[in-house]
């Protein structure tokens, strides 16, 4: 009989001591087309460049090609990640009021909410930041499509879950040919607005 992979830590001790969880859970949400899944893939890649950290990314979407509620959930931990989905969020980013209303209750009491302030006008909790991501993308970078990258820069800056250089390298890698500069600029815009907001 093959008994694959009995977890070593539990095999030796009769008491089966369970190590404390250090899960950090993130959800990026919006509508189809906002690029939340791609943003989350980039975030996961950047986190995964650190070999000491595990990361799992799951996604939820409807059968529509455009529109419809979309969310990407990311779990990171130093130890093994068993349950791949999120349970209580440390960080929630939303591009729509609908997603904000729906997912806000999934935040931990001290969880952080980040919203696109042009789309989300009613912010239900205090521990939150609002940035006009889509407007910033249009005005500062010249294209609304990079709003997700600005948001990525903002949450990286606000939380420090991933170093600037790591996320920069991944954004550069993911950018379609010819758009590297635009995307890196968008990321910088994200870093800058978040840094300014933090100081206040």
């Amino acid at each position: 009989m093959t008994t694959a992979r009995e977890h070593k830590t539990h095999r030796d001790s009769k008491s089966h001591k369970v190590p404390k969880d250090d899960r950090y859970e993130v959800r990026l949400s919006g509508s189809g087309g906002h690029g939340v899944i791609l943003a989350c893939v980039m975030l996961a890649r950047a986190i995964g460049t650190d070999p000491r950290r595990n990361v799992v990314l799951t996604q939820s979407y409807g059968p529509e090609a455009r529109g419809g509620a979309v969310r990407a959930d990311l779990v990171m931990a130093k130890g093994a990640i068993f349950y791949p989905k999120t349970m209580k969020l440390d960080l929630l980013l939303t591009f729509t009021q609908e997603a904000c209303d729906k997912y806000c209750q999934d935040l931990k009491p001290d969880g952080l909410l980040v919203v696109d302030s042009t789309m989300v006008t009613k912010v239900p909790i205090k521990n939150s930041y609002g940035f006009p991501f889509i407007r910033l993308a249009r005005e500062k970078v010249g294209h609304p499509m990079v709003a997700n990258v600005i948001a990525l820069g903002a949450i990286a800056e606000l939380t420090g879950i991933v170093p600037r250089e790591a996320i920069r390298a991944i954004v550069k890698e993911f950018a379609p040919k010819g758009t590297e500069e635009k995307n890196l600029k968008a990321l910088q815009v994200g870093f800058d607005v978040a840094k300014k907001a933090k100081r206040k």
Binding site: V41, G48, N54, V55, V56, L57, T58, Q59, P84, K85
Partner: peptide, 9 residues
Amino acid sequence: EVLGHMREM
């Protein structure tokens, strides 16, 4: 569906 679309290192 979850496993098929799940991303891990």
